[in-house]
Design a protein around this nucleic acid. Sequence first.
DNA 1: AAAATACCTACTGTTTTAGTTGGTATTTAA
DNA 2: TTAAATACCAACTAAAACAGTAGGTATTTT
Lengths: 133, 133
Amino acid sequence: MKFSTRTTYGLRALIKLSEKFGKNNVSLASISRDEHISLKYLEQIFSSLKKANLVKSEKGATGGYSLVKKPEEITIFEIIEILEKDMNLFRCIDQHGKVNCNFKCNCGATKVLINVQRAINDTLKGMSLKDLI
Amino acid sequence: MKFSTRTTYGLRALIKLSEKFGKNNVSLASISRDEHISLKYLEQIFSSLKKANLVKSEKGATGGYSLVKKPEEITIFEIIEILEKDMNLFRCIDQHGKVNCNFKCNCGATKVLINVQRAINDTLKGMSLKDLI
DNA sequence: AAAATACCTACTGTTTTAGTTGGTATTTAA
DNA sequence: TTAAATACCAACTAAAACAGTAGGTATTTT
């Protein structure tokens, strides 16, 4: 189990935006330089973040991205949910935490798996972007 | 982010063993039937679990697998650590929770990532196989 | 002797990942 | 008004990981 580079890079980039919250825009070019991340890849990541209404953008020479909400209002869970393509930790549990087993097995395992998923989610919901500055 | 089928199947199978702890061996054939998991795949999974000394086995007609420790002494973290091939959630953090960034960047991000990793690990360490029966 | 089990090694199709490539559109500053 | 800097968009691709399959051998009980 590993977070994708999308998620990792996204988190790192959002930390940059948090530091400049209420001040400047942050350009992807500057993040690319500072964090050694491919500019084109960052563009894709920020496309997702913008669609999810987590960041807003301005074009042009002084353009760039900024957070839509305060850092303390953005949870790590929220970010991961946007960037990670599949946040269902187990096959037999769907996005809403309900059992969705192919074989309609009546094993007790799904209960545990649901608890594991919930525990991790709660942990991530308890952490915000502010918890780092 | 998703747990591999190895981990998911392994957890489900270990639940079976927990139920029979102190009583019978559990054969992989019976798990395969009950849980609709490929027998050959289960064999691979249990090979890892045995190497890690989490289960022991007996051959022959009444053979099968059983837990080496009590269910309450086996944490979910322990199981996942064995079955999941890579438990480093982020690239820039190694197994021991230390920063290992290719570019030796001095960004503050790694601190957060370490906290995320630790929070999830602690959650999983707090759950045992017993928490389901 | 047969059946049931564990145990071992190698192979493989599919999917996902981690980007790359090649552009267009908009805004600012010289 | 032109150049530079930015965001924005869509398609492609090599490599790695995943999720098994295949074909056996070894041991123990009935």
